[in-house]
Design a protein around this nucleic acid. Sequence first.
RNA 1: GGUCCCAUCGUCUAGAGGCCUAGGACGGAGCCCUCUCAAGGCUUAAACACGGGUUCGAAUCCCGUUGGGACCGCCA
Length: 475
Amino acid sequence: MEVRTRFAPSPTGYLHIGGARTALFNYLFAKHHSALGGGKFILRIEDTDVARSTEDSTQAILDGMQWLGLNWDEGPYFQSKRFELYKGHAYKFLEMGKAYKCFCTPEELEKRREEALKQGRPPKYDGRCRNNPPSPPLTKGGKEGFAIRFKVPHGITLVKDLIKGNVAFNNDEIEDLVILRSDGTPTYNLCVVVDDATMEITHVIRGDDHLNNTPKQIMLYEAFGYPLPQFAHLPMILGSDKTRLSKRHGATSVMSYKEMGYLPHALVNYLARLGWSYGDQEIFSIHELIEKFSLENVGKSSGVFNPEKLIWLNQHYLKEAKPEELSLLLIPFLETKGYKVSADKRLVNIIKGFQERSKTLVEMAGAAEFYFKEDIQYEEDAAKKFLTPDMATIFEILISRLNSLQALTHEAIEAIFNDIINEKGLKLGKVAQPVRIALTGGKVSPGIFEVIENLGKETTIKRIKKAIEFIKSRN
RNA sequence: GGUCCCAUCGUCUAGAGGCCUAGGACGGAGCCCUCUCAAGGCUUAAACACGGGUUCGAAUCCCGUUGGGACCGCCA
């Protein structure tokens, strides 16, 4: 049988880190099996809450998934377009006597819940409408004035979870859940079951915050006579204080990582290793993830989101990336800084110098700025320390020798520097560092020969001349 | 409060009763390399929550305690 997984977010916000990992695991599981013969990854938008769902959120989720490369094989399906299907199921229950009309108003329910909580009783629906006769009208026009509740049978419901193992629930602890609201709209538990069953989902992989819902859903499957999917409940992702990851822990939206200059694969690799492992391996290509992913190697305990490790992975992939590919990714970041740059050979060469020095594309764009600026500013302390009077003559020599150079190659530049330090009896650092300040304005940059090469003869000489003037004006 | 889940370095984790003097990775510390910063190389500190069992033998199995988390909606 073909493996079919799904990611089913509700469009009430952006795609966040936790959702992305759930989507990733579903994707990897399906693709793993698709390589073995059959596997589909389905996207379904759970927008039954009309008040909170927005189209912007749907788009944001789609964008996030596309950026991560989590391409779905089917969908997106929208629950809002399937209301009649759910309603039909609810009314079928009514006819079968497996559900009943509940005339309690939300206000009454809320009041009773509060009272129960105050008295230390479980805030469970008391079932007072349970024995209402299945009276007509069984209208389907909406605004029924009553909700439909599922009649939870007595007994024990066993969840056979692929990650958590067997978990038994006593049905008496579970209240008769509303499956159709009094405004005629279906609720979550009804929709998931109807959808997962009719979409023939074989593996429901989701956060373990849903574990407590699972017995309810199993009862619905059984009441409908639908075959049960396999369940796999993933442990939660926590923030540094070990509570559920949320905005106050910092960036949680997937797209904010794009904006911060992360590579999508770095995030994918990080998320894959958060809760899943494959021996001691840390670095995985997407191909390897698909090949090696299995639910058996998913851990049971929740994990803390660690931005430091994500940064390390990002740096790693920045280092490994082809500079040509990076140039395309870097351009937007340079543009937001106001530089119009094209993806040419020069940009590629520039990038090579920053691949081992940047943690993010944002950082890279910042560090590379001196290449594109018309006028550079000196860092105050750097200028004071390195643009000293004795450097003026060395700068003059440098200018004349660079001027006489035919081609500005790395080797030729290095030879010039070597000659100068040998003649003057200096160490390379004594010359390189002042030149670095003169050319970049700061104390940190790629290798100085490389900087000169990429800057070009004209700009290099112009900036050194400016440094000489600066030195003279100061003394 | 009730129900459920979870428990190895600060963090992510390896570990399927003897291979464990507990391994790897991030982060930390130190050293080397070096034109700066990185990268890289080497070294190092750092954990089986606690208490009982079971067993010749337990990080691993069982029970309890403690701690953490999730869920208890006409949200999803």
